[in-house]
Design a protein around this nucleic acid. Structure first.
Length: 339
DNA sequence: ATTCGGGACCGACTTACGTCA
DNA sequence: ACTGACGTAAGTCGGTCCCGA
C-alpha cells in the first residue's frame, strides 16, 4: 500500500500522476497530488499501440501499484505545447529533416568517437533530430549576455574545448576514470526543458538529445536519472513539510475537540436531563450549517451554541469538509421561523 | 507453455569533482 | 591560499521487464 504526496510540479511521483493524467490537467500544472495506493488500477493499457516499448515499460512500472489520487489544490493551467514549440524537441517534430545542422559545443566528448558509443542509431534515416536544431555555437564566443562566469561555464572557448575533450579522451584511452565535467548552462537548460516534456526518455529521444547537445547518450541518460532523483528528493522534502503542517493542524484539532468534549461532559453533568431526548433525526441547514432536530422533539431544540460546527470546516483535514453532527444541536432561528 | 540467459533500463546509493562563500 | 559545504556528473548494484533460444 502506497501513500503518495506530490506538491508543485508533479513529475509522475507515483502511478496516479502519470504523464497522461497530467496532460489532462494542463500538463505541467502546479498542484498538489495525494495518493493512496491500494492496487487494482486497471486502465493502463489504453493507447499503448502509439507508444514505444520503452514508454509502455515505464508506464507499467509506474502503474504497478497505482494509488487513489486526490488533488487538493487547484492546478494552475500552463499553456500547452509552448515548450515543445519553442525548443523544438526532436520527438515533437516529425518533419523528417534528418539534417544534423549546427554543431554543438564540445564539452565532454569527441564527437567522432561517440557515435559508436550507444549504437549506430544516430545516423538512422528515421532520425528524430529534424528541426530540433539550436545553434549552441552562439554561446561559445562569449558574445551572449552571460557574465564572466557564465562564459566560463557555458561558453567554453575553442581552446578550452579542445583541452577538455582531449583530456577526457586521453583519460578514456588510458583507461582511467574520466573526470567529471559540468554541463554548460545551455546544455542543462535544454535538458531541463526536455525533462519538462518527458521525464523519461526512450532510446530515440535519448540519441536525438545527445546528438543535439553534442553529448554522449550515456550522459543524457545519467542526467535524466539524476534529474528524476533530484525531483523526487525535492518532492519528498515538500511532502514532508506539508505532512508536518498537517500533523500540527490535526494536533490542534484534536486538542480543541478534547476541550470541547470536556465542556460537553461538564454540560451533561450540570444538566442531567439534557440528553434525555427522544430519538430524533438531525437535519442541517445548508446555509448556516447548523443542526436541528426535525421530529416531534424539534420543539426541544435549544439555543445553546457551541463553536464546533462553525469551526470544524476550518480544519485542513475535516473529512470532505462535511460539518459534523452533534446531538446538542443549535438553535435554528430561521428554521423554526419557517415552521 | 515454460524456463533461462542476456540486454536494457531504472532507482537507490555512493563517489568524486567543481564551485562558492 | 585554504577549507568546508553544496550541487551534480558519474559509477555501482540490485531489481524488473522483455525477448529470443
Amino acid at each position: 500500500m502506497e501513500l503518495g504526496l506530490s506538491l508543485g510540479e508533479v513529475s509522475r511521483p507515483f502511478g496516479g500522476c502519470t504523464d497522461k493524467n497530467r496532460s489532462k490537467m494542463n500538463n505541467k500544472s502546479l498542484g498538489f497530488c495525494m495518493g493512496l495506493g491500494v492496487g487494482g488500477f486497471n486502465g493502463r493499457d489504453e493507447e499503448k499501440g502509439e507508444q514505444s516499448d520503452e514508454q509502455q515499460r515505464n508506464e507499467r512500472r509506474v502503474s504497478a501499484d497505482p494509488p487513489v489520487q486526490l488533488d487538493l489544490l487547484p492546478l494552475a493551467p500552463v499553456p500547452r505545447n509552448q515548450p515543445s514549440s519553442q525548443t523544438g524537441f526532436p520527438w515533437s517534430s516529425e518533419n523528417g529533416n534528418s539534417e544534423v545542422g549546427s554543431r554543438g559545443f564540445d564539452v565532454n566528448r569527441l564527437p567522432s568517437t561517440e557515435e559508436a558509443d550507444d549504437g549506430a542509431a544516430i545516423s538512422s534515416p528515421n532520425s528524430t533530430v529534424s528541426s530540433f536544431q539550436i545553434d549552441f555555437s552562439i554561446y561559445r564566443n562569449g558574445s551572449g549576455s552571460g557574465s564572466k562566469r557564465d562564459s566560463e561555464i557555458a561558453g567554453l572557448n575553442d581552446v578550452e574545448t579542445e583541452r577538455t575533450s582531449s583530456r577526457a579522451s586521453d583519460e578514456e584511452e588510458n583507461g582511467l576514470t574520466r573526470k567529471k565535467l559540468r554541463l554548460s548552462k545551455e546544455q542543462s537548460a535544454f535538458l531541463e526543458e526536455s525533462f519538462k516534456e518527458h521525464n523519461t526518455l526512450n532510446p530515440k529521444q535519448k540519441l536525438a538529445l545527445a546528438k543535439q547537445l553534442n553529448l554522449r547518450p550515456r550522459q543524457v541518460e545519467v542526467w535524466f536519472q539524476n534529474r528524476r532523483a533530484r525531483t523526487k528528493l525535492k518532492q519528498t522534502e515538500v511532502d514532508c513539510e506539508y505532512l508536518k503542517r498537517c500533523c500540527e493542524t490535526l494536533t490542534e484539532e484534536n486538542r480543541r475537540l478534547q476541550k470541547e468534549l470536556q465542556e460537553l461532559r461538564a454540560l451533561k453533568t450540570s444538566h442531567p436531563y439534557y440528553m434525555q431526548l427522544p430519538a430524533t433525526t438531525l437535519t442541517m441547514c445548508p446555509s448556516c450549517e447548523r443542526v436541528a432536530t426535525t421530529n416531534t422533539a424539534a420543539s426541544t431544540t435549544t439555543n445553546t451554541t457551541t463553536t464546533t460546527a462553525t469551526t470544524s470546516n476550518t480544519t485542513a483535514f475535516s473529512l470532505n469538509n462535511k460539518p459534523r453532527f452533534y446531538p446538542f444541536s443549535h438553535a435554528h432561528a430561521h428554521q423554526s421561523a419557517a415552521s
